[in-house]
Nucleic acid binder design. Structure first.
Length: 341
DNA sequence: CTCGGTCAGTTCCAGAGGCC
DNA sequence: GGCCTCTGGAACTGACCGAG
């Protein structure tokens, strides 16, 4: 890993340019005194891993060129007094960067009028700052690929004293998600901070998706987690929506309430376990998120007017009866095939 | 006009406890 | 394993409001 003003363009850190078929993303990390070395370093590492993962997955892909910058150039001390060397941020060349990550605790570089989107250039900042971006707006994604005239994305990195890793990784992965997709972003998150993808992906998953997609993804999440004691509030949080709005949109999109959907998923799982295992009803109820055997029986009786054990017996009888019919037919078919050969 | 948030009221359900 | 009762809390709904 090279930080000070040296272009980091991939696994082999190419010194100049990029392959003709590869789109280049120029990323600047703008430092000021007291910046978080951890946050800045982790951003650089995200793009390094993205270059490696992207090349491995696609061969030809978007590649990132990362540079450390400051307003004056030269040596800048981080919060732990380590000095790193930076290039001067050329004000005229700001738009040459696809993304700028601004880090510092002393004189806030993000308030410097020479940077994009500062008060003097508020309208541009409004449209380009990551915090203000409408991530559902495909025009933003289009602007990312539009070349030199595109808006520069600006991210504020957290102060050194905060839990800076998550925020820094999240900011950098926002870009990676767009260029490489969620799978590679998840892989990078796991390589950098094992166990972090579960926390980060729901946040990043909302990038570039419609409300309908968010709802469908939360429905999928409900189905995948139906064995756990989850609530509508959890699902709403998963979809990054308020509970009320989530309920409203879920019913519009899926056609049933989240709790109905969750109950159906749990019943499906319960029926599979009843039919396919010898586990006691109470244990099945607990495994499928239905609470206990009593509640499961209550729901079965209400829905189908039978108990879980009756369901199991009927299912076995029907299966045996079907096997009695199907087995001779299958045997006959095998005999026919033998003849055919 | 649409979308999304808050609030208050109502309905429904999960869990506990007990019994057969 | 199944059933019953009770209760607190979650889920749901309609009305309303503000922002864009």
């Amino acid at each position: 890993m090279t930080y000070a003003g040296i272009e980091q363009t991939g696994a082999g850190r190419l010194a100049s340019g990029s392959g003709a078929a590869r789109a280049a993303r120029r990323v600047g990390i703008v430092l000021s005194e007291g910046f978080s070395l951890l946050a800045a370093g982790i951003v650089a590492e995200v793009f390094q891993l993205a270059n490696e993962s992207g090349a491995a997955a696609h061969g030809e892909c978007v590649r990132y060129s990362v540079r450390l910058l400051s307003l004056q150039g030269g040596g800048i001390r981080c919060s732990s007094s380590v000095q790193v060397w930076t290039d001067e941020l050329d004000v005229r060349a700001q738009n040459a960067f696809d993304a700028l990550f601004i880090s510092g605790s002393g004189a806030d570089p993000s308030s410097d009028p020479r940077l994009p989107g500062t008060p003097a250039r508020a309208p541009q900042r409004k449209s380009a700052h990551a915090a203000d971006l409408d991530l559902n707006d495909t025009r933003d994604a289009a602007s990312m690929a539009a070349g030199a005239s595109r808006a520069t994305l600006v991210f504020d990195l957290p102060a050194a004293q905060a839990d800076d890793r998550y925020e820094a990784v999240k900011s950098a992965l926002t870009l990676v998600v767009r260029d490489h997709g969620l799978d590679i972003a998840r892989e990078i998150a796991e390589r950098l901070m094992p166990g972090s993808s579960a926390k980060l992906m729901p946040l990043l998953g909302s990038v570039g998706t419609t409300v309908g997609e968010k709802v469908r993804r939360s429905a999928q999440w409900l189905r995948e987690n139906c064995d756990r004691p989850i609530s509508v509030a959890d699902a709403a949080q998963e979809a990054a929506m308020s509970e009320r709005n989530f309920l409203r949109r879920f019913k519009l999109e899926i056609g049933s309430t989240p709790s109905e959907y969750l109950l159906q998923a749990r019943l499906d799982m319960t029926c599979r376990l009843l039919a396919g295992t010898e586990l006691p009803v109470d244990k099945i109820a607990r495994r499928s998120g239905m609470g206990n055997g009593d509640h499961l029986a209550k729901i079965f009786r209400k829905r189908w007017s039978i108990s879980p054990t009756e369901y199991r017996l009927r299912n076995r009888r029907e299966r045996d009866a079907l096997a009695a019919i199907v087995a001779p037919a299958a045997a006959a078919e095998l005999e026919t095939r033998d003849f055919a050969f």
